[in-house]
Design a protein around this nucleic acid. Structure first.
Lengths: 358, 358
DNA sequence: ACAGGTTTCTAATGCGCATCAGATCTATCG
DNA sequence: CGATAGATCTGATGCGCATTAGAAACCTGT
């Protein structure tokens, strides 16, 4: 702990901020009276109008702001919503993947009267980078979690406390203990496959990333379901896993010559698979949709302004962010009627990279 | 305020977590001893090894985690940096203008051990949307401000308190009272003009936005200085103000026929002027740099990945964010040796939209 | 005029931790 | 051997607020 000033008043920013006691002195009442008036709900019983006026005036005059820390220590709420991303919230190398979520989160937080407290894994992180932050998180009234991979152990510990928590993404491993707002990738992906099939594609490849994030699993499941529903076969070579490095132009050419007419990729926070396909196609001289059709699951919204370029579906990130905030504030308020697991549907995007099979 | 459990233990998330007192009991020592051992730095003086061992063992056994709230209440500091943007921090319609700043802010905050508290102007904003938030802001140990236009009156009030504050952008109206980290637009803009002049351009137009944000003023000043230094005349028609709507293709054509060979625009959070030029040029059929040269001051970094496309200069937004955080934490720590006004230089970007004059 | 009821406020206390001024006990010295 | 100097630890206290029990003043009806 950093050294602070002598006894009496700490040296920090709270140095000479007015406290309830100051208001009390100025208004000629006691501190608890001030507390009652300032935070005791709108219809605080048993306070004379005259007293209330005096206190309010004094508070106004001093520019009083309740100390959220003390408030929380004493009672339990400070109108702060935590936001913790398991990677940097504002990543450098990644595309601005989280931005749309943040837009929704910010708007809805404001609407609900909460401020956002962004927790950041400190740089000095050893083996369990999240352990420390997941503790700090309790500063807020509740916390929103984002990130492709959820640290199971730490989350388990956090869920053992009763801090309200919402995860932005589907995650059923914790059952009802972990409320979430996710996207219905399965349905949306199946829909994309069906659309391609209707365009005459029969040899469709699914190029996905290496890691098994839940969204990736869902998408593959949706792909398989879509293929099945359209009567298209799926064998070992239909689903390709790559981190991008091994997806060469030659390999793509090979697929093309074997009769593949459409490729489905997924957009992630790195977009590795998706970019690899684009690069390989550019190198091989294939154009979309003339030579090959391309559908990108969860097309990144930041790609290009204007009408959607990529075919596929778009994740309603903004709405998801807002819904997550609503769920969280509901949980904080103790609303029992809330659906703790919410899946939002993704809008199909016709786009310009998918067309009739050649 | 939410009702909590009976006296003794609150019903909140702190339900039955072990406290230092529990450890103390188990180890047969006093609570302050536990505090000393657990948080009194590595080489806490005057603690017998035997005692330390016992306490550590007890803490381990109980799975103790310090309560961050109590910790901060006692320490008088909460390791929170406020961040307030005078518009939405995650704007919908604007380009992701603030993102690079946020990257730097996030990284440096983490490095300094602070979390970020994002304040949001509540939606119910009347005439003075910022008044309420600028009050809430005092909840953090210090606060960073962003946004093209700074609400003078509210800022003045805030500066009257001793809350450490840093503004991201140049702003000298408050003199030394308002510390800031800005960008040296004047020098960088003059440099851009010089570059164009060296490419043979003599008729250079400056297309700027309507509003008189300080950055806009600085850029125009830099433009004029650059022109002067190159011996190029500037008259009333050399500087064009627009919100984009009146910048038609015809008007651009007119300039072209009057011998204008280069246009300088500025990138802002809306990019109105810059976009208008691009649109008009596209409509008129002009290409950059073949028909016209274009330089964009503060080229948006998010435009296109890969080698810089736009000529001009880039604002070191990330570094500015980090520098602002360093300045703020320095102020919080009470470091008197800090330069309260910092201007960072912008890197020239050759880009691909400026070439030799036709 | 007095018991019983209201209204309005205050004293006391605790939240979990950190800090500080001693208290206690042991080592060291002249 | 009394005295001084560490070495270790503890009691008391405060951080700013919320909560609760109950004091004080003020009514009401009989």
């Amino acid at each position: 702990m950093k050294p602070i000033g002598g006894p009496g008043r700490p040296a920090g920013s709270r140095a000479n901020r007015p406290r309830q006691a100051d208001i009390a002195r100025l208004a000629g009442v006691s501190q608890p009276t001030v507390s009652l008036i300032l935070s005791g709900g709108s219809a605080a019983v048993g306070i004379a109008d005259e007293t209330r006026r005096k206190v309010m005036a004094a508070a106004e005059q001093l520019g009083y702001m309740p100390d959220p820390i003390a408030k929380r220590l004493a009672a339990g709420q400070n109108n702060l919503l935590g936001l913790y991303t398991f990677t940097a919230t504002f990543p450098t190398e990644m595309s601005h993947a989280y931005h749309p979520f943040l837009v929704g989160i910010e708007q809805e937080s404001a609407a609900q009267g909460y401020d956002l407290l962004m927790f950041i894994a400190s740089s000095v992180t050893g083996e369990r980078p999240h352990a420390e932050v997941l503790n700090r998180v309790r500063l807020a009234d509740g916390c929103l979690f984002m990130g492709r991979h959820l640290p199971i152990r730490e989350m388990d510990r956090l869920l053992a406390t009763d801090l309200p928590v919402v995860y932005l993404g589907r995650h059923d491993d914790f059952g009802d203990r972990l409320p979430y707002v996710g996207a219905d990738y399965v349905t949306a992906t199946a829909e994309v496959v069906r659309h391609l099939a209707e365009l005459g594609h029969h040899r469709i490849l699914y190029v996905r990333e290496l890691d098994d994030a839940i969204s990736a699993v869902d998408r593959e499941a949706g792909f398989r379901r879509g293929m099945a529903e359209c009567g298209l076969p799926v064998d070992r070579s239909t689903v390709v896993r790559t981190d991008g490095s091994d997806l060469t132009a030659d390999r793509l050419r090979g697929w093309y010559e074997q009769g593949v007419t459409a490729i489905v990729t997924e957009a992630t926070d790195t977009d590795a698979a998706h970019r690899a396909v684009l690069t390989a196609a550019a190198t091989a001289g294939y154009r979309f949709p003339e030579d090959l059709s391309l559908a990108t699951l969860g097309a990144p919204e930041h790609a290009v302004p204007g009408p959607a370029f990529l075919s596929g579906f778009s994740v309603p990130r903004r709405e998801m962010g807002a819904a997550a905030v609503r769920l969280l504030t509901g949980l904080i308020a103790g609303d029992p009627s809330l659906a703790r697991h919410q899946l939002m549907s993704c809008e199909p995007m016709p786009g310009q990279t998918a067309g009739p099979a050649r």
